[in-house]
Design a protein around this nucleic acid. Sequence first.
DNA 1: CGAACTATTATGACTAGGTACTAATAGTAG
DNA 2: CTACTATTAGTACCTAGTCATAATAGTTCG
Lengths: 191, 191
Amino acid sequence: MRRSKKDRQQLLLETIGENPFVTDEELAERFEVSVQTIRLDRLELSIPELRERIKSVAEKNLSDEIKALPIEEIIGDIIDIELDKNAISIFDVKHEHVFKRNGIARGHHLFAQANSLAVAVINDELALTAKANIQFTRQVKEGERVIAKARVENRSLPGRTIVEVDSWVGGELVFKGQFEMYRSNIDEKEV
Amino acid sequence: MRRSKKDRQQLLLETIGENPFVTDEELAERFEVSVQTIRLDRLELSIPELRERIKSVAEKNLSDEIKALPIEEIIGDIIDIELDKNAISIFDVKHEHVFKRNGIARGHHLFAQANSLAVAVINDELALTAKANIQFTRQVKEGERVIAKARVENRSLPGRTIVEVDSWVGGELVFKGQFEMYRSNIDEKEV
DNA sequence: CGAACTATTATGACTAGGTACTAATAGTAG
DNA sequence: CTACTATTAGTACCTAGTCATAATAGTTCG
């Protein structure tokens, strides 16, 4: 045994988690076991075969697109949403989001996350940002995870909705914005 | 012939475009032709097989680096710049920048262009946005060219610089923002 | 009329990346 | 020694195709 069964299976989960596109054959080579062993492992761990994995990734994508009234191209992953009330999204700051020179996240990514969330939380297909008032209260670095929390204010004008978005890294406030959103379905009943 | 070859192939393109998960067999039933005919059609139209289609949908989704924003160092092309004074950039609104639903540009792209320009115009390697006050004054559609003009205000505070950015499409103002930028190379503490 | 051509269908051999099942072997524990 | 686990091997079968070849039906040209 190169590794214990348990270790290998743990690694297998991680490996497939990172890259669902890997075949049993490739995995067998990587772990220096036979293809059959990999298949037994997958069976025990209830990991579906390659094609099913790919399919589910694709379906997840497609279903996002279908249900995509507001959620078309959100920056960050929405993990919780209650339309017209509040929403939370996560955005992991990666290498491509930061200034090369100092590793600090470019402001527009934080803005994009907040703006996306503000658009998404509004229960309106055509929500658009009209104005925004924002502050970057702390610099965000590569590798940090930004949690944005949006809440819709009640004191909204007709046809306009105010959304407050606060973004946090750990316990620290890194971004604060007030978004004035235009909405189209002012007094209409919508589905 | 139930339909002409041309009609069927046109419909085939649309059908697969709407639902890439459909098999040749299902298509054959739908169009009342043999599976072989469907395959010939796909060959002529260069439509890849089901598995390849699913895979590409999945891959598109998985590369959230692309999804997260293909934002390089600068959004838009800077066509004129005078450090600490003013700068101009051009940003062409393409398909990937707009809401699918209505073809209106997502606010964060206009913000990103303006923010990028505000950072660039500051004669400081480590310029960062501290606050911004922005307005989206007119909707921008796919295909339009946005010209952003940044000018640095003199009335800046120590360690801070105010940059005004106005963005235009043709003669119309589409975006207006006031950016308060940090700068490090004034005798201030490191940021 | 027959030859030429297009469109369609059928057939068979082969492929990747599996599932499901059976069987053999190596190594360890009681 | 026996029981058991872990691993490997092999076979048949599956889906959703590719590729090549051939047969057939219908139409058009001369």
